[in-house]
C-alpha cells in the first residue's frame, strides 16, 4: 500500500491534524510500514465469519428515564479556554 501525499492530506484533514509539509514523507513512510503489517490479514479466509465487535456476548442495559445530573457550569466553564456568558466560544461557525 502506497501512502502518497494526497492520501495523507485527505486523512489528516478528516482527522483534523495539521501535518507539516516537511514531515509528510516521514509520516507517510511510517504509516506505510504499519499498513504493511496490517496487510497480513488479507491472507486469511474469513468467509462466513461473523464480525466480533465486543469481547462479551451481552446486551445493552437500559437506564431509567430520570434526571440525575445537576448544573455543573461552575466547574465546566472554568475548564474551557474561552467562554462568554455560559457559552463556549469558538471562531465563527459557518453553516
Amino acid at each position: 500500500m502506497k501512502f502518497d501525499n494526497d492520501e495523507i492530506k485527505k486523512i489528516a484533514h478528516l482527522a483534523r491534524i495539521n501535518i507539516n509539509k516537511n514531515e509528510a514523507d516521514k509520516v507517510g513512510e511510517k504509516l506505510e510500514g504499519i499498513l504493511g503489517l496490517i496487510d497480513q490479514m488479507t491472507q486469511v479466509n474469513t468467509d462466513g465469519i461473523e464480525p466480533m465487535a465486543h469481547a462479551l456476548d451481552i446486551t445493552q442495559p437500559l437506564r431509567e428515564d430520570k434526571v440525575t445530573e445537576v448544573d455543573i457550569r461552575k466547574k465546566s466553564l472554568k475548564l474551557s479556554n474561552e467562554t462568554h456568558q455560559s457559552l463556549f466560544i469558538v471562531p465563527r461557525v459557518i453553516e
Binding site: 462568554h84 456568558q85 457559552l87 463556549f88 466560544i89 469558538v90 471562531p91 465563527r92 461557525v93
Partner: peptide, 9 residues
Amino acid sequence: IEEGKSGID
C-alpha cells in the same frame, strides 16, 4: 456574541 465568533450551548 462577538465579531467573528460563535458560542456553543
